[in-house]
Design a protein around this nucleic acid. Structure first.
Length: 508
RNA sequence: GCAGCCUUAGCUCAGUUGGUUAGAGCGCUUGAUUGUGGAUCAAGAGGUCCCCCGUUCGAACCGGGGAGGCUGUACCA
C-alpha cells in the first residue's frame, strides 16, 4: 500500500490479538483435537458421561470474584447483562458442574460421574505457559465420599498420561491431604480465633506451595521475616518463630521414596495431643486407605506419590488433593524454558461445593487437566502416540489445474481419489502452474498430480513427489545441475494411478 | 498489583554522542533457468523509527506522560 493510500484510511486497525490469547493453527489444533478425543474415550471406557455447559454463567453462580461496578473484571471477565445482572466467563469447569448437579439433582444417577472439556477464561497476567483463555479437561465424581473415588481419579490421571504417550517415570501424580495441612497449622500453636489467623494461614500455605519452585531456603524466609526476589521486590513473610519454622520444614521434607515412608514419617506429627494432631490423624488415615487400593492395583510410587508440600488452591478442597507434574529432564530444553512448564493438572476432594446451592453437603472429587500446557510439555518431551505420528505424515495429494476447460474432469479425478481413501484436493485458486506447486509445497502435500496437454495425449498422469524433490534440492547448489535433476516425478497410466499413489504414500 | 528491562520493515536486529532521501539478514512478491514448488541468480514491494505532549532552527535519538511487551515476584478458583 502506498503512503498516499494509507493516508486516506488512517484508522486501519492493526491485526492484533489481546495479550494472553492465541490463535491455534492447523497442526497444534489437530493435535489438540486428537488429545481431547483420546482422553474422552478413556473416560467413556470408565463409564463417565459427557457434559457440556455454556461459557457464560451468572457471576454469583460461579461464586466468589463477584464483580463490583468499579472493578468488574478482577480475576474474571465479567459483563453486565441487559437486566442488570452480572455475567462471567467461566474460570473453571467445576463451578458450572456444581450448578448443573444442584439444578438436576433429582434426575441424575447418584453418584454422578461426568467428564467435560472446554475453554475457560481468567483475567490475569499471562506468562510462560499461562494464557487468559485455555482449555481444561475435567473428570469428576459427585456423590461419592469413599477413598475409592479419589483413587480412581489418581489412576485415571496416570492412565491419561500414558494414553498420551508420556512414559511411566516421566510423569508423577503427587497427593496430599488438606486435613493434614490444616492439622499441622493448628498444632503450631496459632490461635484460630486470632484476627490475624486466617491471613497467616494463607501466607504459610502459600509459602509451602512454593517449595518446588523456590527451594527450602526461600521457604524458611517466607515463613519467617520475608524474602526479597531478584528484581529487588520484597515479599512479606508469615512471621513465624524458629521452632514453628523448623516444624514445618521437617514436615515438608520430600526425600521419601515411597508412600508408606511418607505415612510413617508424618505419623510422628499425629502423636501430640490436641485438635491439630487429631486432624492430621484423620488425613493420614484417608491417605492410608488410598495407598492400600493404589498398591493393590499396581500403581506404585513412581506414578502416584504422597507429598506433604502439595497445597493446590486455597478454597474449596476439603480432603485429598492431587497435582500432576512432568519430568522434563528428557526434554530438549534449548532455552531452559521447556523445563519450567509447571503443573499440568490437579484436583482433589471438594465436599462443600454443591452445598452452596443445595444446603446439604454432597461429597465430590475430581481432576482437571490443562490441555494447552500439557500439549506444550509433550511437544518439548517429544511424546508422540503412534496415531499422531501417523497423522503427522504427509498424505495430501494436490491435483493441479492445467486447463480450465477441464475442471469437471479434474474434480471427478479428485473425487475418485477420495473414494479410494486418499486425502486429495483440487487447486482452487487462479494461479499458474508455478503458483500451484508452491501451494502444494506450503500445504506440505506429499504428491502433486499433473495432467496437462502432454499427459492427456499419452493417456498418463504425472505424479510429482514433493518430499523427494525437496530432499534433492538440499543436495544441489548448481543451477545447471538443478535443471538437469528432473523434478522427482514420473508418469503413470491412468488405470494404474491409484495403485501407484497408494504405494507412494505408504513409503512416505 | 509490585520491581527491573525493553519497543526501529512480516521476523531477528543494526543505526547516527540531535542534521535533509532510516539500513542489513531472513521472509514476502515478481522475473530468469523447466509446461514444474524446493536450489541458484536478478529485481521489487514493505516503515507514523509504539503513541501523545514538551525542549530545539531541526527529534527515531533529549525530557515528561501514556500504551504495549519481556523477565522476576505476588495472586491463581
Amino acid at each position: 500500500m502506498t503512503k498516499a493510500k494509507r493516508a486516506k484510511q488512517p484508522k486501519a486497525p492493526k491485526p492484533r490479538l489481546p495479550r494472553g490469547l492465541q490463535d491455534i493453527d492447523s497442526k497444534p489444533f489437530t493435535q489438540q483435537i486428537n488429545m481431547v478425543s483420546q482422553l474422552a474415550s478413556l473416560c467413556e471406557a470408565h463409564g463417565f458421561c459427557a457434559l457440556d455447559t455454556p461459557a457464560l454463567e451468572y457471576a454469583d453462580v460461579l461464586g466468589k470474584f463477584l464483580p463490583d461496578a468499579e472493578r468488574p473484571n478482577e480475576g474474571v471477565f465479567a459483563l453486565l447483562d441487559d437486566d442488570e445482572q452480572w455475567l462471567s466467563l467461566r474460570y473453571d469447569l467445576t463451578a458450572p458442574l456444581a450448578r448443573y448437579v444442584a439444578a438436576h439433582y433429582d434426575q441424575l444417577p447418584k453418584p454422578f460421574r461426568r467428564y467435560q472439556w472446554g475453554w475457560v477464561w481468567r483475567n490475569e497476567k499471562p506468562g510462560l505457559g499461562r494464557f487468559r483463555q485455555f482449555m481444561q479437561f475435567d473428570v469428576d465424581t459427585v456423590g461419592a465420599s469413599g477413598a475409592q473415588a479419589d483413587v480412581e481419579m489418581c489412576m485415571l490421571a496416570a492412565d491419561f498420561m500414558e494414553a498420551l504417550g508420556i512414559a511411566r517415570g516421566d510423569y508423577l501424580l503427587r497427593v496430599n491431604n488438606r486435613k493434614i495441612l490444616d492439622g499441622i497449622l493448628l498444632s503450631l500453636g496459632l490461635d484460630p480465633d486470632d484476627a490475624a489467623y486466617e491471613m497467616r494461614r494463607l501466607t504459610i500455605l502459600r509459602a509451602m506451595d512454593k517449595l518446588d519452585r523456590l527451594g527450602m531456603d526461600a521457604i524458611r524466609l517466607l515463613l519467617g521475616a520475608g524474602r526479597k526476589d531478584e528484581s529487588g521486590d520484597f515479599t512479606e513473610g508469615a512471621g513465624l518463630g524458629a521452632a514453628a519454622i523448623d516444624k514445618i520444614v521437617d514436615f515438608l521434607q520430600t526425600d521419601d521414596k515411597d508412600r508408606q515412608a511418607v505415612l510413617n514419617r508424618l505419623g510422628t506429627h499425629a502423636q501430640d495431643k490436641g485438635k491439630g494432631a487429631e486432624l492430621v490423624k484423620i488425613g493420614l488415615h484417608e491417605l492410608a486407605l488410598m495407598d492400600e487400593l493404589l498398591t493393590q492395583l499396581g500403581y506404585g510410587a513412581e506414578r502416584v506419590l504422597f507429598d506433604p508440600s502439595i497445597v493446590r488452591g486455597l478454597d474449596y478442597y476439603t480432603g485429598p488433593v492431587f497435582e500432576m507434574s512432568l519430568n522434563m529432564s528428557s526434554a530438549k530444553s534449548q532455552t531452559g524454558d521447556a523445563a519450567r512448564v509447571g503443573a499440568i493438572g490437579g484436583g482433589g476432594r471438594y465436599d462443600g461445593l454443591v452445598a452452596r446451592f443445595k444446603g446439604v453437603a454432597i461429597p465430590a472429587t475430581g481432576i482437571s487437566i490443562g490441555i494447552n500446557r500439557l500439549m506444550a510439555a509433550r511437544e518439548a518431551m517429544g511424546a508422540m502416540t503412534e496415531a499422531e505420528q501417523e497423522a503427522g505424515k504427509a498424505r495430501l495429494v494436490v491435483v493441479l489445474v492445467m486447463d480450465k476447460t477441464r475442471l469437471g474432469d479434474m474434480l471427478a479425478l479428485v473425487q475418485q481419489l477420495r473414494k479410494a481413501g486418499i486425502q486429495a484436493e483440487l487447486y482452487m485458486g487462479d494461479g499458474g502452474m508455478k503458483a500451484q506447486l508452491r501451494y502444494a509445497d506450503i500445504k506440505g502435500a506429499a504428491l502433486a498430480l499433473i495432467e496437462g496437454e502432454d499427459e492427456l495425449a499419452k493417456g498418463v498422469i504425472t505424479i510429482k513427489d514433493l518430499a523427494l524433490g525437496r530432499q534433492k534440492a538440499a543436495e544441489i547448489a548448481d543451477n545447471a545441475e538443478w535443471r538437469a535433476s528432473q523434478h522427482a516425478q514420473q508418469q503413470v497410466k491412468k488405470e494404474a494411478l491409484i495403485a501407484m499413489i497408494q504405494q507412494k504414500l505408504q513409503i512416505n
